[in-house]
Design a protein around this nucleic acid. Sequence first.
DNA 1: CGTTAGCACTCTGTTTATTTGAGTGCTAAC
DNA 2: GTTAGCACTCAAATAAACAGAGTGCTAACG
Lengths: 345, 345
Amino acid sequence: MEMTERKEKILAAIVEKYIQTGEPVGSKSLVDALGFSVSSATIRNEMADLIEMGYLEQPHTSAGRIPSSKGYRYYIEHLMTAYEMSSVEKGIINSKLRESSADPQAVLEKTGNILADMTHCAAITTTPADFEAIVKKVELVPIGTRTAMVVILTSTGILKTKVCRTNSEITIDVAESFYNIVKTHFIGKPASELSIAKIQTLALSLGEKSLVMTPLLVALSDTAKMTERTEMLLEGQRNLLNHREFESNAFELMDFLHRAEPLNMVFSSYNDTDNGMPKVLIGNENIFKELQSSTMIFSKYSIGNHESGTLGIIGPTRIDYARLIPSIKYLTEVVGIILSDNMED
Amino acid sequence: MEMTERKEKILAAIVEKYIQTGEPVGSKSLVDALGFSVSSATIRNEMADLIEMGYLEQPHTSAGRIPSSKGYRYYIEHLMTAYEMSSVEKGIINSKLRESSADPQAVLEKTGNILADMTHCAAITTTPADFEAIVKKVELVPIGTRTAMVVILTSTGILKTKVCRTNSEITIDVAESFYNIVKTHFIGKPASELSIAKIQTLALSLGEKSLVMTPLLVALSDTAKMTERTEMLLEGQRNLLNHREFESNAFELMDFLHRAEPLNMVFSSYNDTDNGMPKVLIGNENIFKELQSSTMIFSKYSIGNHESGTLGIIGPTRIDYARLIPSIKYLTEVVGIILSDNMED
DNA sequence: CGTTAGCACTCTGTTTATTTGAGTGCTAAC
DNA sequence: GTTAGCACTCAAATAAACAGAGTGCTAACG
């Protein structure tokens, strides 16, 4: 059976009405919602076809219809007219994000908040990470006589610090040796080379200085690891409680969201930028059963030219796709721009 | 009417049974739970007295009894035998926290996680803050030609950093001037003196250098402010969903917890350390109506000798006080010790 | 042939009535 | 002061009845 224009119009009307009301949509209520005039019986016939084609579902025999995952997908790919954000809205978002633009972590937290507020869903953002990043700069900042802060800056503009403590005094002499080692072994090389293993072999060759140096180098290695590791920020989980579809299993969903690994798996298995369009996973399109009554919309922001992190939302499948997809797209772009600004020298 | 030993035993039994089962406790089921043998009628008489005295409540006529806030309070103050944590448990907590002991933020996050896991409640921790802190050290770490990181260390061991960007190059000359200004105006003085107002008057007196210097000084002021501001970390909110008492209003409660100010108000209005014992606020003992069906247990950790921050939990009033109060007490002590360690030079 | 009116049928959600049982409060006797 | 006994209360569970939204099907229509 093939799709006709009228079927498309009916499908679109059902999706939109259902998104709006949350109630299964009946044939009668569609009669007036549609532009052209047909009887409810005709619509029923068409709806029966749409069910057969897999675009609609029936909660039970004598109930209205609701869109299936496939129905939503057809809708977002062929039927919906994406909402255009006004420049005012854009301006507000922009200025909110610029407030704390120097700290990536803060920017992403804010982004999460904005997303959660805008969408009434749970928002997820991941901090930038880049496995190919190279160490650009290392600094050792003295804090106390035996305490210092290690600072790493990578080529992708990621800045991480860590405080470490040693057993003996960090003299100027020590600091100098530290910088020498860093210069010859690490600057200009991938951060991933700063492994514990390498540190250990290096420490062995240091002789008596090894004792003071090792903690510093270990801290350095830890910090380097931080530049590679993505961290997940979860905002607005409480919004999930306002959707009836999660009444019963809100805990399971929230618990799932806290286990970062599976989500990371999802994010990383969709690495190809779809021309900058956010990726949408609807209901049973999700791999994890915990998500199969939800929709995820996410997108990768780029720092410079590298896809560095993800931001997205999780909500019910019944969600205003036409508005949210463009919003997430825009936020992704802005975050990319702001964080890229940070990178330049 | 005065309290008798038998009444106490009955009250304790009711509280404990109710905490365990969540069902109103009837007179019959108490007969065998009590050590001595009396009939259910006698217990009923006693329970009637306890209601009159305000220690018990009745959800409706012909139902069992549940403890009132006052009843819980009497229980924790006179009747319960505090649970002693085993040294194994203590050891586990200790080592978990030591893992990331250098970064206070990380320690508190971990603490929150541990608390949430242990108690199945929502856990709140606040970062250390001290209004009387004195600026001990300031560093300017070069990041790029026009970017630098400002570092502040206070007398209470709080370390904060902020990246800032200027419009012109940060030369060695500029850095020197910066250090001079800092040395003469800020080191050894309270962090609170680093106000924007003061920065502004200072900037005016700088002449041509003002242009480069102002962003640096503003960043410095911002960073100083960060040392004073407490930040709230909320962990394990989802646990609240597992308590029937929050079935209907979980959203309201979670939403309340996200508005940091009211909670801060609560924390700061109980500043006196009650001999190191955690503060317990049960049901209607809470000022905010959003909390009146919950119990808060919190306690202040000290860095050095100053009370610096708070950690605690929020859960239903029906909670295992005998176990949780000592746990929170212990955690508070450990966190204090770990963070104090960081402070020493 | 697609469209439509008509109608019996299905299923849910709501209301109302009935029953059950745990638990109480009270009284009178011990 | 304690207890057995008993009538009473109330929430929760079960059942029955009802209303109404919506369908599927059939037969008629243009």
